[in-house]
């Protein structure tokens, strides 16, 4: 994998699900030579106090991250689409449960 200069193994990002039904959340990263050890290291490092019931490890280089400089281009267009929010609509006086 990338980062050839680093003799400390490739980087993996770690995501932990804290309890059933909620999304996995990014908690940090580990170095590991392969999938199994990435999982093992993530368990040892990020779940020493029953912080989770499920772990994802992902090679850091597989993550495509948006660039802060592109934020306007990416996120601006949604700002003027107020009709995407329920509060945009006028409900008839007296209507209930809608």
């Amino acid at each position: 994998m990338s980062n050839v200069k680093d003799s400390q193994w490739p980087l993996w990002e770690v995501f932990v699900q804290a309890s059933p039904g909620i999304p996995h959340k990014h908690v940090g990263s580990v170095h590991a030579p392969d999938k199994q050890m990435a999982m093992q290291n993530a368990r040892d490092l990020y779940t020493r106090r029953s912080e989770g019931i499920s772990i994802w490890v992902v090679p850091a280089e597989a993550i495509v991250a948006s660039n802060p400089d592109d934020s306007d281009m990416l996120f601006e267009p949604s700002n003027d689409k107020v009709y995407r929010h329920p509060t945009f609509y006028v409900m008839p006086e007296g209507s209930k449960n809608i």
Binding site: D6, Q8, L11, V30, L45, R48
Partner: peptide, 23 residues
């Protein structure tokens, strides 16, 4: 063991600044 973990959390956050673990 916690202290080892603390070291590793911190190395990882330092690496996000563009320096390698090896360095």
């Amino acid at each position: 063991q916690d202290e080892a973990g603390h070291g590793l959390y911190l190395y990882s956050s330092c690496e996000t600044l563009g320096i390698s673990r090896e360095e």
